[in-house]
Write a protein that binds this DNA or RNA. Structure first.
Lengths: 331, 331
DNA sequence: TTGAAAGCGTTACCAA
DNA sequence: TTGGTAACGCTTTCAA
């Protein structure tokens, strides 16, 4: 039979060490406004260790009136390895600034309801990827004590700091490259998977804008991420001589289907992806790609910290997502 | 100038509605032990809405003595799309059981230190992927009120429920398949990337065990995830006629390098991956793969819920990770 | 150098 | 049907 012990509190530590709760707090938090004798310190540490005492974060921040929690709703869409690396860096950097990063799985919550759920945790800052929040949501969070709300997405939201993911630039970049390579009838793959629209629509728009007035045509090409859909698309593709395939995975899918249908790449049709994944280098022809640079996790952590310290300051707006073409053999 | 308003509390709501804090609590929580008149209910709801009141989760669970938070340390290693889908399902299912799933970014924390950091949040349950915790860590968590600790990894940990990821089975499965296809000198790729060892070592061990006593040989083949490393490996591969490449991505990398070095696949050398990614189907030859089935998120959520309700029960141990070969053209 | 006590936002018991 | 009050675990001011 397993005995379920009561969770030790600072009062238990105090009792065991033969001091008051205040003293325990002083010792364990290294409060420097107060001098505690060395023997007492030792007794307190000893008692805490013996009991396996772990402070209660909620009680602490309740008393303090503020937390060190940075909340990040987990993005709904499937994310690639780039995002994972960015996340690690961000968490590491914030950890060094003594914040606690927590990802909240908001599966099934919508809009303001989601914002309220986040607000219940009283985070000191919230970093929202994608389009998961509106002005009302931001207001809810701020009223609940969030000192900074930062969005990481395609457009800015009233009241929040914004890291603008400039997906249009990705499309512009790809289209301009295809144009330079002599292509004039250009297709832009638009994934049919839900949730990817926030990225894909601006990419298409960017491609359109880049070639406006040049006489080249740009058409959106819907594509689901299945072999079958790719084969069908390859079978009767509209008259095109260049394709920007949304990203490297869709590009690989499409390229395979095109090759199977007898199209030569890049002679008949140039194909370019995005994300510059390793896998693109392994294809034949090697896949050209738009290399995307996410903001540095360190910089973003610094922004959050700054925003927390200076709550009420003007929201900062940054344009992130550097885009540059890596040409290989497919264009 | 932005006015930073004080966060409204239930006391503010009570004041505005002209009732006591207790009444507010009753109304907003739909307490059924107590009957509140309809007009009062309306006044309270009205006041809460007007103030934008959001309850304080920490205060609530402090008072209640228990939280509904299920903590999941974010895995350190890069994870694939399978894991992402599993996570979503798990979160959704737990959400429906009224738990709050929170992923904790523990970058930079080690062993018991990490467990203490998690314990500070007083989660009601902790799901630890990989090998991030030992018996001491489990004890810390339980002493801090966690009613269930579940590990999702290669081996069980004293005191915790275990979902055993049977990576050996993956290796066994792959090796047996290669053997069946007539291969007798088999290589097993062991990624050099740190953190993947927990998966790759058991896979190699499983392959060894599967072919023990058959006369077939099994050798570990270290490989870093770069084109260069793959090319070097392909240039002087030991005498092999079959390779289990750890997963589909390494398989793709290796297969490309082998083809570039003039080896025919599968005639000279059979190659099999794992994870059954879409990309494997796009290669030529199409890549055979070990299909891995993670536990269902729903079942896992049910396990967690059961464990929470019956804390102190015997830890459950489940073997998860179904492994089955999907043969395509590369073997 | 240490202790007593107040109070953070909630909820649950008991009394009115 | 509603309100007063105590308590959850912690920090911090004030007093000794």
């Amino acid at each position: 039979m397993v005995q379920i012990p009561n969770t030790p509190t600072s009062a238990d530590v105090a009792r065991l060490a033969g001091v008051s709760r205040a003293t325990v707090s002083y010792v364990l938090n290294n409060t420097d406004a107060v001098r505690i004798s060395e023997p007492t310190r030792r007794r307190v540490h000893e008692a805490a260790r013996e009991l396996g005492y772990v402070p209660h974060a909620a009680a602490r921040s309740l008393r303090a009136g503020r937390s060190r929690m940075v909340l990040m709703p987990a993005p709904a869409l499937p994310v690639g390895p780039l995002y994972g690396a960015f996340l690690d860096e961000f968490q590491g950097a914030l950890g060094r600034l003594d914040y606690t990063v927590v990802q909240y799985g908001s599966v099934g919550l919508q809009g303001d309801e989601a914002a309220r759920a986040w607000a219940e945790l009283r985070p000191v800052a919230v970093l929202v990827p994608g389009t998961g929040i509106g002005p009302r949501g931001v207001a809810v969070l701020k009223r609940s004590g969030a000192r900074a709300v930062v969005t990481l997405g395609p457009e800015r939201v009233e009241g929040a700091h914004a890291l603008l993911m400039d997906h249009e630039a990705v499309g512009r970049c790809a289209a301009a490259h295809l144009y330079e390579r002599g292509r004039r009838r250009i297709g832009v793959v638009v994934p049919e998977e839900p949730g990817l629209g926030v990225c894909s629509r601006p990419r298409l728009a960017g491609a359109r804008r880049a070639l406006r007035g040049t006489g080249a045509s740009v058409v959106g090409v819907p594509l689901a991420y299945t072999e079958r859909a790719a084969a069908e698309l390859a079978a009767d593709l509209p008259e095109l001589d260049g394709v920007f395939a949304y990203n490297d995975e869709y590009a690989m899918l499409l390229m395979r289907a095109l090759q199977d249908a007898g199209r030569r790449i890049p002679e008949d049709l140039a194909v370019i992806g995005a994300d510059d994944l390793m896998l693109g280098r392994l294809l034949r022809p090697r896949l050209s790609s738009v290399r995307i640079e996410l903001p540095s996790g360190r910089e973003l952590a610094a922004l959050v910290d700054r925003a927390v310290r200076d709550a009420g300051g003007e929201p900062e707006v940054h344009r992130v997502l550097g885009a540059s073409v890596v040409r290989r053999e497919s264009t």
